[in-house]
Simulated scan of single mutants.
Amino acid sequence: MRLANRPIFLAACAAAALFAAVAGCAPQDESADGANAAGKGQQSCARGKLATVRTGRLTVGTDKPAYAPWFADDTPANGKGFESAVAYAVAGELGYGKGAVDWRTVPFNNAFAPGEKKFDFDINQISVSSARKKAVAFSSGYYDVRQAVVALKDSKAAHAKSVADLKRFRLGAQVGTTSLDVVNDTIRPTQRPAVFQKNDFAKSALKNGQVDAILTDLPTAFYITSAEIEDAKVVGQFPSTGGTKEQFGLVLDKESRITGCVSAAVEALRKDGTLAALEKKWLTDAVAVPVLK
């Protein structure tokens, strides 16, 4: 009788041990400040121990060239420029020091194209949109965006005062950007807009007279007119429309297990004033630029 009952006894013990192990390994509610904000069915946000592409390291993607004022000297890893500084600030919140951050070159359009990603997050002036959310995940916004128009100072486009004034000009913008969306959906010019693979090509077209004006985000517009095309000016900026602000967000794989952790880090940096301080340090004040309506 004792031998016959032994398998039942062992099975009961095994079940009890398994229950205890599972209970002991269950994620704990560490705090309410984002330390365990991994998101839907994801791991807890243990500092420096996230489910990253490379264990113990954080891989950050961006395009090349890496333009100012978002980066400096085309070197994302130097910590200079707004987005480089933001990337390292987010990494720090997640528990990764500068030495544990690896940078990977990712073309702008590839960052939010469907498919598995080889980065943990990408930072490259990519606006959060419902269309892009079908292919990738986004963090909370780290920068509130305004679009702007740049034209040569001696051109007729430089004197535009409204959206209606811009309709008759040949306009240009980078493919896949919100700037191009503003051209097509807000301005609706009478001439087909010029579409460029990179902003460098758009700037060359402006200097060569192939377009009358180009659209880009406001800080980039300031940099173009102050450091790259000195005979150009920022014609104006566009107001935020509707109830939702346009924001740049960090891009993650659609199935990323760390999206909630990254969002919590961004929100913490916004709450403690870090994002505002970095914006003040690296980006130009836009108060003096007229709003085009």
Rank of each mutant, 00 (worst) to 15 (best):
T244A: 12
G273V: 08
T177R: 00
D165L: 00
T259Y: 01
A268W: 07
G243W: 07
G260L: 08
Q191M: 15
R257S: 07
F238T: 00
S204F: 04
D231S: 06
T259N: 12
G260Y: 08
S179N: 04
A173K: 02
K281G: 07
A232L: 08
I229F: 08
F222Q: 03
L166H: 02
V182W: 01
N199I: 14
K245F: 14
K207C: 11
R257E: 11
A227W: 07
A213R: 00
D231P: 03
K203Y: 12
Q191F: 12
R188A: 15
K198I: 11
I229W: 04
R168F: 06
E279T: 13
P219H: 13
F222K: 07
P219R: 10
A173G: 13
D181K: 10
L218D: 01
D272H: 08
Y223R: 10
Y223A: 06
T274M: 03
V175D: 15
V163W: 05
L275G: 01
V266I: 09
Q174L: 04
S256N: 03
T225Y: 05
L215W: 05
T178V: 08
A227S: 15
G172E: 00
F201T: 11
K233V: 15
A164Q: 13
D217P: 10
S204Y: 05
G242C: 02
S240E: 13
K280A: 11
A276E: 08
Q210Y: 12
R257Q: 13
F248G: 03
A264K: 01
V163Y: 07
L269V: 09
A268D: 12
I187L: 07
Q174C: 07
A265G: 07
T241D: 13
E246I: 07
A173R: 00
W282K: 13
L283E: 01
T241P: 06
A227P: 11
G249R: 01
G209H: 06
K233E: 15
L278E: 00
V234K: 00
A221I: 09
R188I: 11
V266K: 04
I187A: 00
T274S: 04
N199E: 13
K254P: 04
S240K: 09
T244G: 05
R270M: 11
Q191G: 15
T220C: 08
